[in-house]
Structures are given as C-alpha cells and as structure tokens.
Amino acid sequence: MIKSVLIFNNHGKPRITKFYQQIDIGTQQALIQEIFSLVSKRPDTVCNFLEGSQMLGGKDTRVIYRHYATLYFVFVVDDCESELGILDLIQVFVESLDKCFENVCELDLIFHFDEVHHILAEVISGGMVLETNITEIVHAFSESNKLKKRSGTMATIAGSGAGAVARDLGANLANTVTTTLQSTLQNTVSATFSNFRRTTGFNS
C-alpha cells in the first residue's frame, strides 16, 4: 500500500500532502521535514530510493522519489509495492499533471492544489493504485471539469493553466519565474519521458 504522497519544492515547502493513514498533524510535519532533509542532500545522479529513517516506521517502509525541476515527488510505500513500479507510477502521475495543466509548473500546483488532489484521486484511492493509464486519468479529470463548469462557475477556483495565473499575478518576476519553471519542468518531463518509455510500459 501507498502510505503517503508528498510534493514539496527545493526549499522543502510542501505543495501537496496526502496521507493515506491517519497521522496527527505534528507527526505529518516532522515527517515532511525529515524526508526533505534526507532527499535534498542527494544529488540527482544517485538512485531514487531512501532507506533507514527511523521516523518512517520501520523496515518495510520505503521512500521512493523523483525530482523534477523545482519539485520533489515523494511516495512513501510499504513492501507490498514494487520499487520500480512506484517510480513508474510517479512518472504516470507527473505526466497526467502535465496533460491536465498543459505544461505543468510549480505555480499550477500552488494555485490549484485542489485540482491536483482530484487528479491524484484518479490515480490512487485510499492508498491503493486505481489507474495507471494516463488517458483514463486525464479523461476522468476533464470530464469532471466539464461538470464543474455546468454546475455553476466559481470563477474563483476556475482558471485554466499557469498562463492565466501568471497573468493574474501581474508581476514581471512572477512571469519570468513561470516561464522558466515551465520550460525546465517540461524539459525534465519529456526527458524522463523517453527514459520512462524504455524502462516501463504500463500503457504499452
């Protein structure tokens, strides 16, 4: 089972936290900090598995992560999951985000944290993997978006893609940040994507 899914940026600021087991808030925060301190020390050239953290709960817990541009995607899982399988799953999740947000960047995750949760809910349900087919995931997401629009717009939460957000922000700095983030994240995604094709094949 998957115990939790965490997304935080290079500075350890959490963007998405999802715990599939009941843990009190204090422990959650300590856990995020612990994982961040371990993960951020590791260069991108080393393997994506973490071992030996007391707090994570013993021998059968493993931390599997991927680093994309400014973000770390961290999955905490037990030994019922396949290590390489989870790495592929992270890739599936990131690619799905990329499709749903059209070139996803950190700002998308910040301003649409709820939508990211809904996309995640199409991949993992209660700690169990629900779907590994990107087309299915994106389809379910866009379907509910259509329904959302029909059910009365809440202009507040709506807003499509990073471009709109960046424009809203109005600040030049934010704009440049967005574009650089976009390009880097996109680059990484496509770069790993080809790699992904080679090593996996959930959707082949």
């Binding site: 396949s82 290590e83 390489l84 399988g85 592929d88 080679r198 094949g201 082949s204």
Partner: peptide, 9 residues
C-alpha cells in the same frame, strides 16, 4: 519483457 520493473519483479 522490455519493462524493467516487470523483469525485476
């Protein structure tokens, strides 16, 4: 198989 994850498992 060409999927390393499956091969490994």
């Amino acid at each position: 198989t060409h999927a390393m994850s499956l091969l490994y498992e």
